[in-house]
Nucleic acid binder design. Sequence first.
DNA 1: AAACTGTGAGCGAATGTTCGTTTTGAGCGC
DNA 2: GCGCTCAAAACGAACATTCGCTCACAGTTT
Lengths: 223, 223
Amino acid sequence: MPRVTAAHETEVRERILLAAAQVFADSGYRGATMQDVVRESGLSVGAIYSYFPSKSDLYLAMCDFTSGRAMGELAVRLTAGRTIAERLAIAVAFYIDSIDTHGATPGLAALVPAWSEVDTSPAVRDMLRRRRDQLVTAGRLLVEEGIARGDLPAWVDAEVLGGAYSALLDGILLQRVEAGSSWRRADAERRARLVLELALAAAGAERPDVPEVAARPWDVAGT
Amino acid sequence: MPRVTAAHETEVRERILLAAAQVFADSGYRGATMQDVVRESGLSVGAIYSYFPSKSDLYLAMCDFTSGRAMGELAVRLTAGRTIAERLAIAVAFYIDSIDTHGATPGLAALVPAWSEVDTSPAVRDMLRRRRDQLVTAGRLLVEEGIARGDLPAWVDAEVLGGAYSALLDGILLQRVEAGSSWRRADAERRARLVLELALAAAGAERPDVPEVAARPWDVAGT
DNA sequence: AAACTGTGAGCGAATGTTCGTTTTGAGCGC
DNA sequence: GCGCTCAAAACGAACATTCGCTCACAGTTT
């Protein structure tokens, strides 16, 4: 059944990508089978292989699609923020929203298997690095603005804080995955917002002295 | 060869667990084969199956072993800290150390595959939850002490900050995995310590006002 | 009829696990 | 000391199953 329109092609592509996001989030990369994707998408094996050359290509495309969508939507939502505190709060709330699948929007949970496949293919690592760059850059820009306006301490390195925040949010993604059905969105938001509050509260203060601790390769105690 | 000694049994068990940690960290849970564990441990298939009834049991035992060891060693190291800032810095530095494998000590990177297997078996979820409880509790106790001594703001909820910190550290674990050989330990430590500095700097300040942002299930903008 | 998308049975490779066989060394009689 | 014995421990070829992927064909539109 040839649907010659280009619109149809992207429609089917997305249908496959959405099914893949669901399935990979549920069972991991290796755990998910192409049959699962077939079942979830309602298409056939052959159809899927005519859109994506291999399972790993499908997975990578799904990851780019999923995180790309989220970054785009984040940019849109940030325009609604007036103060810097508001913008930061929007970014946090949005990231937490985007962890789960909502209707036609695949959730970031589908990215989790990527971290265990990093040593398997360089393409996976590249994909994660691209994503990290985007997150850190977005964070850095917000922080720089906060510093310029005096809402954040002048002694923080914007790049470092951006990196820390992207780690915090990814950690919350892991907590969401491990919590399963007992997940409470409000708890996660409280955790992420608390760090925001600490940063804003520290605006007027001096940089405190945190002792250096030498890296020490573990002289195991006990068995 | 009947090695009646119980010592020999735990010795072989650990040998298998260490090999498993290496292999699972490299290839993920499904990606790693029992043959890989056989090769890495220098034992045989049958030997391994006489110590662990199945691949998933081996994986779970390895996770408990790995994170249990780390928690034990953390408790030991914390006793060296005098001030609260020093103890917090020790905890952070130690977690970052324990991400990588050092000699006989398996690195936490072997835990990463667990998050993609959470929906596969309840035992994996339980294991991760146990670990999270320990981390959050350890963090909460440190924070409570910090508040009591006036080093941390009185308005922070210790449980929430503990949860946030465990998320931050797990996020750094992910960053380490995705960075691969371009990983710089110092960068990670800077990120984790910056959040510590913010918390300590906020000690004297009022709780700032961070606007509420309503959860909003994504009205997708553009394809 | 021509063109092209979608189908799904089946192939070959690889994996987790079993189980019959081989090797080891502690205990024991001397 | 010494060698014999035998259960325990280690081994690894073989099995059933599963998965990613191909390809010959059917169905639909223009």
